[in-house]
Computed example of a mutant assay.
Amino acid sequence: MPTGVAMRDARKQLFDAAERVLLRDGPSALSSRAVTTEAGCAKGVLHRHFADFDAFLAELVLDRITRIDDQAASLRNAAGTGTVADNLTGALTDLFESVAVAIVGLVTSRDELRARLRQARPTGVPLLTEATAMIASYLAAERELGRVAADAAVDTLAPTLIGAGHLLFADRRSTPPEAGSVHEVVTTVIAGVLREPLPRAAT
């Protein structure tokens, strides 16, 4: 990579390279050399833009969290369209088919990274906390529209859905779950609060 490349471009290339290493080889394989080798640049490029490797990883996690913020806005805008179960199934699949599961593994495996992230995100597990807020916000919007029961405990349903989704996708080396499996989990969790017409059983 030329030394004159803009910092924004260098950050993106390094973040994307780290994501590929995470998805392919898991958190234990992530090192500054693995990232720069994957990005096809000198090791010094990373250290010119970040104080150290844990600073790089913290910025990587925070960058990926912004993607959830974008997804949350789209999901909330989908309230009142399609079906609640389909919207939630799509959101969980988009979330956990991405690098999210690997990022959670990375955060839980590195003490220094967790310490740095707590300065920006004092509570909860980074990324899972934002994902839970995304689901809760969507369910609240559907509750306002009457498609979810007025007394639905969205702050309980949301972490239940995120936890169940995370478990479905947690085995990084196996085939991802089929959409039908995710949908079944979603419908099971929200069955008691759903107020939209349920699909008819096949005859």
Results as ranks from 00 to 15, higher is better:
176 P>E: 06
133 A>G: 14
81 T>W: 09
151 D>N: 15
40 G>D: 01
60 L>N: 08
103 I>R: 11
64 R>F: 10
51 A>H: 07
108 T>S: 11
158 A>Q: 01
134 M>F: 04
131 A>L: 00
125 V>T: 15
185 V>N: 00
129 T>N: 10
103 I>A: 10
96 F>G: 05
22 L>W: 06
188 T>N: 04
111 D>F: 12
64 R>L: 08
70 D>F: 12
140 A>E: 12
109 S>P: 01
174 S>F: 14
7 M>S: 14
139 L>H: 01
47 H>W: 08
55 A>R: 05
95 L>H: 14
21 V>R: 01
29 A>I: 12
9 D>C: 07
79 A>N: 02
152 A>W: 02
88 L>D: 03
105 G>F: 09
151 D>K: 14
15 F>C: 06
93 T>E: 11
121 R>Q: 09
158 A>W: 04
127 L>G: 02
42 A>G: 07
7 M>V: 14
122 P>D: 08
78 A>W: 03
3 T>W: 09
15 F>Q: 05
91 A>T: 00
97 E>I: 12
174 S>Q: 14
79 A>W: 05
131 A>F: 03
93 T>D: 13
101 V>D: 14
198 L>H: 05
136 A>C: 02
153 A>H: 13
26 G>F: 06
193 V>M: 02
23 L>T: 12
163 G>W: 05
136 A>D: 02
14 L>I: 04
182 V>E: 05
49 H>Q: 11
44 G>P: 04
11 R>L: 03
